[in-house]
Design a protein around this nucleic acid. Sequence first.
RNA 1: GCCGACAUAGCUUAGUUGGUGGAGCGGUGGACUGUUAAUCCACAGGUCGCAGGUUCGAGUCCUGCUGUCGGCGCCA
Length: 460
Amino acid sequence: MLARQPYTSGPLRHSGEPMTKEFWIGDVLSGKYDSSEVELCGWVHRTRGSKKIRFLVLRDSTGTLQCVIKREIVGDECFESLSNALIESSIRVKGIVKNTDREHGHELVVESGIVIGHVNPENPFPITESAMSEADGGETEFLLDNRHLYLRTGRMTKMLKIRSTVFGAVHSYFRDREFIEYQAPNFVAGAVEGGSTLFEVPYFGKKAYLTQSWQLYAEAAMPALERLYTIAPSFRAEKSRTRRHLTEFWHAEMEIAWGGNVEVMNHGEALVRSIAGTLLEEREGELIELGRDIGLIQNYADSKYPRMRYDEAIEALQQKGVSVEWGQDLDYSKEKVLTQDFDVPHFLTHYPRIAKPFYHRPDPDDPKYVLCHDLLAPEGYGEIIGGGERTWSESEILERIDEEGTPREPYEFYIDVRRYGGVPHGGFGMGIDRVCAWLSGADHIRETIPFPRDSRRVTP
RNA sequence: GCCGACAUAGCUUAGUUGGUGGAGCGGUGGACUGUUAAUCCACAGGUCGCAGGUUCGAGUCCUGCUGUCGGCGCCA
């Protein structure tokens, strides 16, 4: 046990002495420091008490802990100082960890403490219980306006931890399989999809656009790296107002040489299952606290994902009485009907050529179709992966560009990839925020990203 | 681009056929307590989104505007 040195309030250490943090609330809660002295740094979550005793719930990034402050122990000056600390003031307290029989388990019997960052009573912390109880499941305008403060509340903190684990799982999946991480530019000259959804930015007297996808530039590096991936933001100027869309979203993309639709699809399935599995290992507690059914996630990690051709999907829809014609792309309302038959993600493959852009390779067995796939998440979360085999010969890519009426000029570099030793290759893009929303059970994709961007909001 | 809702204190909201806008949380002061979304008393805090209109009188009815939210299409 450390020597008990009174730690009185006083001027902060401004001399450059490091303020390293040695103890974490999560460790205290695990029992690691029972009956020991610790110094905790954190923020006031809640506080209550009388003139003699004060109960202060302290929060740090790893949990919350009740600190008991008694006037007779800490003295008048320290007691008053800590008692006046409003919600979200930052403090340091030193004391003895006690493992109690009470509902919260561990607590800290404070011996000394100091307020580090004050909160002005004229401007108290605006995120109140009432604001959050309304938000539990939905997000009010107020919470979106105060996103920078909402981040430090329990629900957002859990979402951010889950998000971090998902990002980590993506990196691990690809790096474990010797993929090379590769970065494409965010300023681009041309579109991947139709031009209407591009963000235009002034670029030294010219026009540039924010990228919608890493794909075209990844294909350029495919002959160099053969297996490559990225995690990067993509931008789409869609005025979409749904729980699945952001204008700035995080895109995990991969590209492989010497592979086709099936190999790419196998990677997509393995990646998503690996993310679900990693979440169970690392974030089960957070998922449960968010009210997620762990059995569902277990099923997503363990099950094979069914695969269905577009034609079968059309047939299934028609049998259900949904009016849909062959050749139509499947919009969300139809995806949702299809998804109801599955309790795990499922692939849709072989869309009609006329429904997909030029870079999708026509199926040599039946050129009416292209070798592509979408992965649809269950529970109404919709498409999380889109990918497939690329058109890889020069003659075929020119034919497809021309039949689509797309100008060749911006894609010359892309066509060059085919002119110099083209090989079969393919890849996919996964919407990471959508995966986070689905696996965490979020009601809106906005809940999974710290500062969401949509067609009506770029602040804070 | 299309469709639908909503806008009252810092937050969450009540507000009846149009007749002087209330409460809970948060804040301040006090009481009290091994409390735990503590409790109790008191106080402060409102251009009822903005601009017009109807009316003796508008938070309430009408019109326009602005903002936000939800959904569709599009997609990841």
